[in-house]
Every structure is written in C-alpha cells, then in structure tokens.
Amino acid sequence: MARKEYSFYPGCSSERNASASNYMVSVQSMCKTLDIKLNEIPDWNCCGASIGYADGGELPRHVMNARNIALSQKHNPGQDIVATCAACWLGTKESVERLSKSEQLLADTQNILADAGLKVDINKNTASGVRHMVEVLIEDFGYDELAAPVKKPLEGLKIAGYVGCQTNRPFGIDGESFENPKYLDKMVEVMGAEPADKYEQKVTCCGGALAFSEPEKSQAQIKEIVESAYDHNADMIVTPCPVCQMNVEVYQEQINKTYNKNFNMPVVYYSQLMAVAYGSSAKEAGLDGQIIRSKKLEEIAEAK
C-alpha cells in the first residue's frame, strides 16, 4: 500500500495536451518518489475557475463543485480531495464553505444532485478536507521528509519563488503570512538550491484570467514579476500555480517587444524542481514542456 493516498482532482489545464500537462508529468514523478497514490475522481468536471462567476453565478458554480465532491465521496470514500491547481482548490473549498453556511444553497444543491443520483455530505469533506498539493507536501510530509529522497541537490542554482495569489490567499499554507510567505523559498532550499529570499514580487498578481481579456494591463504586472527575478540574479522562477506559470512564461516575448527588454526567464513548477532533485530525467520532470527551456535544470537532470 502507498504511504499516503488521496482523491485527486487534476483540473482542466493538467489534461494531456493542455497548458499545464508538463505540471502533471512532474507531479506524477514526484509522487512516485514520495510514494503518494493519487486516485483520480472519475468523470470530474471543471471547477468553473475564477472567471466562472460572470456567467455561472452562485448556485451553478457550487453545483459544479458539489458534483465533483459527491463523485469523490462515492468513489474514493474517506479520502481528502487534493488539487494541483490553485483555482480548482479554491473553487472546491469555497463551495464547501458556502454550502455549510447556507441551508438554502445546500438544499438546492442536493435537490439538483439528486437528479443525477448523487449526494454530497459536507461533514465528510469539510473545507479542511479539500487541499492543495503543496499543503499536502508541507503538512503531511514536512520539509525533512521532502529532503530525504534528494539524490541530486540543485547546487549552484538561484531561484525566485513566485507564490502568486491563489495558493497564498485567502487560505495560505501552513499558517504563513499572506504578504511574505516563505514556503516556496524553504522548498527551494530543501532541494539544494539558493532562494532569492528578498524577491519582492513574490505575491504580485499576474493578472490571472485577465491576461487574455486585458493583455496590456496584465503584461505590465508580469514585466515586474520577471524583471525583479533578474534583479535578484535568479536563474529561474518557480511557482505552484498553472495560471502563474503560463502567464509569466508565455508573454515574455510580447513584453520584450513592448518594453524593449531581453527577457528569457524560465518559469518552472515546484514539482519539476523536486522531480529533478529526486533523480528524474528531464523528460520525467516535464522539462521538455517549457517554452523557455531551463538549460541549467536540464543539465542537472541529465548528469549521471
């Protein structure tokens, strides 16, 4: 039996050939090393993401999340739900909170779920039973246990920990402050690299979904996030969020044009750092999925 087992909510962006498919590849390698078993929720649906509010309203959004929770309770009973995407995590967790506070919302939701033969028990997966992968790593394993399997310390790398918004607020990880969370820096350190510990853009918002609808305004934010990493002599940025990863990586070329810059800063996931430190190949760590390749990390991965 695996050391830990969770009900897994992968989210749309992690699907094959989707924008965060490389995240998923590295999470799988990381979980293999840590002996974590992820049981995917069968036929899970999208959480509605943060932008779902505009057309989804309240009840339809909560119904979407409740369907996932109900399926999880049916097929993976007794297991905490774990998400790798911050928006999925928040959406699900917030629905649990709202449903447990409003009898009417809960009654309406149950009524709708019943048509599909489903039922949600909000006492079984309370808000604390809906978790982010980073939370699981830090709270269920802890830094020492995460350090134990390190085979190839990421020596010589300086890494800017970009925490962003939604992994950090409003719930946060392990009681850390919202304005200066340090868990990413600690993870970087545990993997043997040097954190850029005064990276002042660590919680700046990348624009989220507005990177699509308000590109100029969002790219002004992203410019600060990348520029500061250069100011701190970082070799790369690390993030726990698929939207952050995508926004901060893929618009650098356009930002270069607009602002006359020369950005070419790799943006990787914490799980990719961990997979490499645990001895995975570049491919197993999903590094071939980076548009801006991280040569230094790839070199460590390929070194014997």
């Binding site: 749309c12 962006s13 993401a49 932008i51 509010y53 057309d55 609808s213 308000e214």
Partner: peptide, 22 residues
C-alpha cells in the same frame, strides 16, 4: 467589456462539455 466577453466564452466552453477545451 473584454473580460465580460471572455468570461462568457469561457463559461459556454465548459458548460458544453464539462471541461475546458483550450
């Protein structure tokens, strides 16, 4: 408003199949 319009594209996209088709 571009965000309003994008949000609608997004919602219609997920409501159609249950998942985002990027």
């Amino acid at each position: 408003n571009p965000t309003k319009r994008f949000a609608k594209l997004f919602w219609d996209n997920i409501a159609a199949t249950g998942r985002v088709n990027e």
